[in-house]
Write a protein that binds this DNA or RNA. Structure first.
Length: 603
RNA sequence: GGUCCCAUCGUCUAGCGGUUAGGACAUCGGCCUCUCACGCCGGUAACGCGGGUUCGAUUCCCGCUGGGAUCGCCA
């Protein structure tokens, strides 16, 4: 960001200086100042300007961006062909706007912050605002994550707000589920419904008075009006229009725009949408976005019962909660222009917006239940560590060179908006699995403690009484094998049972009558072993095999099945050591009995 | 259909005017081997199309095509 900033500034400096460099020869026109910017250019008589300079004045210069995001250089180029010569780096950097993050706090540990003191006003305040209409969606997690990362990186504040104005679908249980999911993920919030904060309440249904207040302001300012048209009337009109012309888009006809008397009928509040002009904002990831005003409708802001709709609720809350940056899914991009109009009508400064590209299903459609797991809880139930999930989600639409695997700490350090991509992506279960495996394998990402703690519930769910110490000893053998905690628990199952569960298939294939003797011999071998560790055990096993003219392959699988009930396990002798002499011998003897009762090979 | 947005291997992406277009996942070979993994070595695989700008475009501009979002008293 720093380097980019320098480069952009340098290039611009050079370009503008070149454009108006000749003006330096006319110091009297500039009151003796050197001409190197738009301000100076403005002082010159228009007749003296050349095409590029007029263009600069007309569309504005990126130098104006010092106060905030400026015009996108690409757009400059479009409107003035002379700018086409700008280098791509200039345009690309410019497209991200000129937003610079405030410096992170120095040596301030989160824990040391006084909980109730609000963060200094120059620090970002971001929010995640789910509606409790269902489980926490994986796409929502990514939105929450990006906001959270920004807050943690900059020392800002992360607010959790519950948007429960859809009373049909919102429930306290859903809110509970969302909060639990967020906690499991470790995306902690500084202000929210359960922790309080200086900008509460944090549920929209508890903020109704606030919306009423702001609506009055909007009405007084002429930016909104009451409307007594009923939903039924409007629906009928919409139907009628569709019947006449299926392609037509219904727009509220403005029936109540100037109506003062509603005869006691219930009224909603509508936005008085401007019909001409256009509105532009600079998105942190998409750059400059301009929308013509005539595309807006007089949308309903508040229902007849006083409950606000999304656009008003979000705007009022973001204003009153002091939100400085709104990062949300691209599906909200269309809401942004009207919202900015609302901010302006309310005399409030709009926050900076950052829209995230959509996370789609593998087939390119909207990611939903039918494509597999979308609820966070399902990932928890699969035994995927939260940091792994978050790692995958962060890498989705954001990159940091060639790096793929990040700890949460890395993400906080390295996250930035400039490295966010713009294209929608498709969710890839296999890639998530690979990232998860990476986290599970590396002790620096999942410590032994964390691994054991994460694994225990899955062992317990199998009805096993696993002891910590045993799991910990087994860990080195399983880190490279278990793709999830759920899998690891399944693979360790035999360690915590009196007798291994041997499935019929393995039994008929490997515990055949002709192996009974060998199994018995190996049991004796192990029983008499002087040094019960892997290498000596393997050596004596090998010696036994050699004596009989057998190879490892002849007896390894039967022994494996005897000990574990499975055909795939870590190295045989590691397993023997793990089980211990007594259990190993007992299991081999039991298997030998099963084998002699069993069928002949191939039967 | 209107408006907005997007476009590099199958997937996630690097690239910021000159590269043999890189990495990761997946996939296909091979090595290792008591099974399963891990690991290692190697292969296949991409700049949607057409114009411009430029000595030179994957990269900048325009158009097309394709995809997505949205058009509710859902959020």
């Amino acid at each position: 960001m720093q380097a980019d900033e320098l480069r952009v500034r340098d290039v611009l400096e050079a370009l503008v200086a070149a454009a108006i460099g000749a003006r330096a020869a006319e110091p009297e026109l500039l009151g003796g100042q050197r001409a190197h910017g738009l301000h100076e250019l403005r002082l010159l008589p228009e007749a003296l300007l050349d095409e590029r300079e007029r263009c600069l004045l007309h569309v504005g210069s990126p130098f104006d961006a010092r106060e905030g995001p400026g015009p996108e250089p690409a757009r400059l180029a479009r409107r003035c062909p002379i700018w086409t010569g700008c280098t791509s780096s200039l345009v690309r950097c410019g497209k991200r706007g000129f937003y610079h993050p405030p410096p992170p706090p120095r040596n301030v540990h989160r824990a040391k912050r006084r909980p109730m003191s609000s963060a200094p006003s120059d620090r970002p305040r971001v929010r995640f605002a789910p509606s409790p209409t269902g489980y926490l969606h994986i796409g929502g997690v990514r939105t929450a994550l990006f906001n959270w990362l920004w807050a943690r990186k900059t020392g800002g504040t992360f607010v959790l707000r519950i948007e429960d104005t859809d009373q049909e679908r919102s429930t306290p249980e859903n809110e509970r589920v969302i909060i639990d999911s967020m906690r499991w993920l470790g995306l902690d919030w500084d202000e929210g419904p359960d922790v309080g904060g200086g900008h509460g309440p944090y549920r929209q249904m508890e903020r109704l008075g606030l919306y009423a207040e702001f609506v009055e302001k909007l009405i007084a300012a002429g930016a909104a009006y009451r409307c007594s048209c009923t939903k039924e009337e409007l629906d009928a009109q919409r139907e009628a229009l569709k019947a006449r012309d299926p392609k037509a888009q219904f727009r509220y006809p403005g029936t109540c725009r100037d109506k003062k008397d509603h005869g006691g009928r219930p009224t909603v509040v509508r936005w008085r949408a401007p019909s001409s002009g256009s509105i532009t904002y600079v998105d942190l990831v998409f750059g400059e976005v301009t929308t013509p005003n005539h595309t807006f409708q007089d949308a309903v802001l508040v229902r007849a019962d006083g409950v606000p709709l999304y656009n008003l609720g979000a705007v009022v809350d973001d204003i009153t909660m002091g939100i400085t940056l709104v990062a949300r899914g691209r599906d909200h991009m269309i809401n942004t222009p009207p919202q900015i109009h609302l901010y302006e009508a309310l005399g409030a400064k709009p926050p900076v917006f950052a829209h995230l590209p959509m996370m789609l299903a593998p087939d390119g459609s909207k990611l939903s239940k039918r494509h597999g797991a979308v609820a966070v809880s399902e990932y928890r139930d699969k035994g995927i560590p939260p940091a792994a999930l978050l790692n995958y989600l962060a890498r989705f639409g954001w990159s940091h060179g060639d790096e793929e695997v990040f700890s949460l700490r890395d993400l906080v350090d390295k996250f930035d908006w400039a490295s966010c991509g713009r294209g929608d992506g498709k969710f890839d279960t296999k890639k998530l699995a690979a990232i998860t495996f990476e986290h599970l394998k590396r002790p620096e990402l999942t410590s032994d403690d964390a691994y054991v703690t994460g694994l225990m519930p899955f062992l317990e769910a199998r009805g096993l009484e696993a002891d910590d110490a045993r799991v910990r000893t087994a860990l080195p053998l399983y880190r490279e094998r278990g793709q999830t905690w759920l899998e690891t628990a399944e693979m360790m199952d035999y360690l915590f049972r009196a007798e291994p569960l041997i499935d019929d298939k393995s039994r008929t294939k490997f515990l055949t009558a002709d192996k009974a003797e060998g199994l018995r011999d190996v049991a004796r071998l192990f029983a008499g072993a002087t040094d019960f560790s892997a290498a000596p055990l393997e050596a004596s096993f090998a010696a036994y095999l050699a004596e009989r003219g057998l190879s490892m392959k002849d007896l390894a699988q039967p022994v494996r099945v005897a000990l574990t009930g499975r055909t795939a396990t870590p190295g045989l002798f590691e397993v023997v050591v793990l089980l211990g002499r007594e259990a190993s011998v007992a299991r081999l003897e039991r298997a030998a009995r099963l084998a002699s009762e069993g069928a002949a090979p191939g039967a």
